[in-house]
Design a protein around this nucleic acid. Sequence first.
DNA 1: CTTTGGTTTCAAGGGGTGTTGAAATATATC
DNA 2: GATATATTTCAACACCCCTTGAAACCAAAG
Lengths: 108, 108
Amino acid sequence: MDETGTLAAFASLSNATRLRIVRELVAAGPDGLSAGALAEAVGASPSRASFHLANLAKARLVTSSQFARQVVYRADFEAIGAMIRFFMDDCCAKNARIRACCSGMGRI
Amino acid sequence: MDETGTLAAFASLSNATRLRIVRELVAAGPDGLSAGALAEAVGASPSRASFHLANLAKARLVTSSQFARQVVYRADFEAIGAMIRFFMDDCCAKNARIRACCSGMGRI
DNA sequence: CTTTGGTTTCAAGGGGTGTTGAAATATATC
DNA sequence: GATATATTTCAACACCCCTTGAAACCAAAG
């Protein structure tokens, strides 16, 4: 992910509803969650959830696929990892105090 | 850093000028850089740089202190690390693919 | 083919954000 | 005190984002 993509990812994650959606999707794992289930989980109306899901998809933080009547969303784990990696490598990698934020996360 | 703080940090980092400022400040290390030096480094007018620096300070990503006529800004390394840690721990810690983004960053 | 369920689109509005250049503030120098 | 330097504040403007509720769309079931 380049600077433009990272800026878009940060912008997308700077909204409480969207951050909650990402949290739900990461917790849900590879199976993902339907738009309706997400809307209920984060306490948003269907149209509001759809609005924010479209924003997350545009920022490439989630993917979607249709099953019957439902649209299933999944976290894009690679893209989220790439975003963090860009931020750490390109902006902050050389700083030990920032790098230390990853300590305690287990064996990496 | 809590959710509110992380949202503010993401919002602040979602602007190209501010992301460049943070990059400059992290590269500059503990000595920091003056407002004028930063403005020139990122190609912004003094008032524009001041506007974005105030935003970064409000998000607690940078600190400032006055020396003579100059105002010196420094990256808040602890806060930046705390932001990443919150995002990783609270949102994504349990996911191996995201966690893998920190591989290749050297010994942690 | 009509109906039901799931999701998205749309228009309206209210509010926040970024840019610009001029003016104000504060500090040092002459 | 007057002047130059460094930074911030201010007003104006344009633009984008978020919310809401209604309408439209699309796929399945009756």
